[in-house]
Each structure stands twice: as structure tokens, then as C-alpha cells.
Write a protein that binds this DNA or RNA. Structure first.
Lengths: 141, 141
DNA sequence: CTCAAATATTTACCTAGCTAAGTAATTTAT
DNA sequence: ATAAATTACTTAGCTAGGTAAATATTTGAG
């Protein structure tokens, strides 16, 4: 006996995330960024210079994904990589150019996010977050 | 003034969907399928033979994505493509092998989905779906 | 002190989103 | 009837997830 409600939920989740990513990418393209690149910039702004491990752990993404994205960002002048004290690690910093552009991008992303979240009240957003946190929470997360 | 609540919501959404896709892919790998391939098989089981356009419209994905995924599935013996009456279109059918495997895969996916949704009550799942449908709903969807 | 285990990053190779542009068949308008 | 527009699908090329395995450095056990 298959649970149709659950299946619909996951189907819907996938669709929504794709749609949202698309919208955000569309806004970001004006600034020469992609969604995942922006998430790294945002991270760096929030926490300051950090190692790649800190980044992928925070973003919940695998290390090779971050390696590749950072290469692109370095090539495009968004970040620089410095060797850490521990010579295995590389510390990632935003470039001055990135810092200058940050505010504008941040506001553009905020605007599209607000727009997409607009049909939901503040309480509904809280509730939605609550439900999402419960979904798929197997162990200590 | 940036809306932190909203930003956290989208961050959480992304994380959850990645985590879920990973879990589902993990289960599906036992059956030689990936998430997106399974979604097509599921679609075909539900609606019977259908054109590629019908598939990508249902899945809310772009046409080239479906083209590529179907090629892989055809190569692996999951589906066959027949020419439609309208010679532009190709009608996609599950192979007999796929039909035979369907039930087992369907149950495996259902189980992991139930597991992931387990922390949520039936009402919470309904509510979550309701909230997701409202999120990012700009025009007539 | 030395050598094995752990850690940080990378490389190679999958799948799967997307857009832009191309081809072939069908519709539609003139 | 014919040419233009639309539709179905494909190809090429980009980004970004993932895993498995390699390299370099550090840590730790004996």
C-alpha cells in the first residue's frame, strides 16, 4: 500500500526547489553569479575568511563540489585562496571587488526571496521551517 | 534590511532537498536507477505510454533534460521509444523488464519516503504541502 | 622517532538541472 | 498551394550535485 500523500509531498518539494533555484539564478545572472556561488559569498560575508571544509560543512554539500565552485569563483575574481597555517587547508576570502558588489547582490536576492515568500505570512514561514526541519531528520542534526 | 527568516527558509529548503535526493538515490542504486529516472518510470506506470512533452510538462522539467535521461534509460533497457502518429513526437513505453521490476522499486522508494516523513503527522504533511504550494506561486499554477 | 591513521583538498567521472540554437514535421495564414 | 510560424525533439555547452580514489600534510600510537 503506497502512501500517495508522502509521494506527492516529495514531488512537490522537488518542483518548488527547482523553480526557486531558477528564479534566484535569473536574478543573480545580472551580477555574474550562480545560486551556489552566491551561497558561498554569503557564507564568507557572514563568517569572514574560512576553510573549504568549514564552507562545505555549513552548506551541507560535499567537498569536491565546493572545490569546483571555488575554482570558478577564483577565476572570476570573487574569491582568493590563501594557504592556512595547516598547510593542508586553504583559507578562502572574498576579494575587494566581491565585497564591493556584495550589498547590491544581497539586496537583489533578498527582493526575489521576499517576492517568492510573499504569499506566506511570517507565522507560516516559521511553521514551514519547523516542518522542513522535521522532514528527513534521521539522527542528530 | 534583509529578511533573515526568509533566507533561512530557502537555505533549509535546499539542504533538505539535497538530503532527500541523496537518500532516495541511495535506495534506488540497488535497483540500477537514479531519482530522476525513477520519476519517469513512475510517471509511465501511472499514465501509460506518453510523449516526451507530456513527461517534461508533468515533471516540470525542461525538454532537453528529459531527452538525455530517456537516452540513458533506453540504453539500460528501462524504456523504449516508438514513433508517434505525429512523426515529430516519440511515445515512451516501459519495457517488460521495467514493468516486472516496478513493484519492488516502488515499495523500496515508498519505504524510504515513509521513513523520512515519519517525524511528521498526516496533518503536518498536508499542511507542509499546502505551504509549499503557496511558496513561489507567482501566477496561475 | 617513526610509521600508520586521519584530515584537507583535489581529480576523475557519473547524473541532472538549465539555456540557446538546430532540425524535422505539422499548422496556419495568405 | 505555399511560405511562415509553431511544435517536438535533439545537440552542445554551462553549472552543480554526488561517489571513489589520489595526494599532501598533520596527528598520534608505540
Amino acid at each position: 500500500m503506497i502512501n500517495t500523500e508522502t509521494r506527492e509531498l516529495f514531488h512537490l518539494l522537488n518542483q518548488r526547489v527547482r523553480l526557486i533555484t531558477k528564479e534566484v539564478n535569473n536574478v543573480l545572472s545580472d551580477h555574474g553569479l550562480y545560486h551556489s556561488q552566491w551561497s558561498i559569498i554569503f557564507c564568507l560575508d557572514q563568517f569572514g575568511p574560512m576553510t573549504q571544509t568549514a564552507i562545505w560543512k555549513y552548506l551541507n554539500v560535499e567537498a569536491p563540489t565546493v572545490t569546483r565552485t571555488l575554482s570558478r569563483m577564483e577565476k572570476n575574481g570573487w574569491i582568493i585562496r590563501k594557504q592556512g597555517e595547516d598547510k593542508r587547508e586553504r583559507v578562502i576570502e572574498m576579494t575587494d571587488a566581491a565585497k564591493q558588489k556584495f550589498t547590491a547582490v544581497n539586496e537583489a536576492v533578498d527582493q526575489i526571496e521576499k517576492e517568492m515568500a510573499h504569499p506566506l505570512s511570517s507565522e507560516e514561514i516559521q511553521h514551514l521551517k519547523h516542518l522542513l526541519r522535521k522532514l528527513g531528520a534521521t539522527e542528530g542534526e
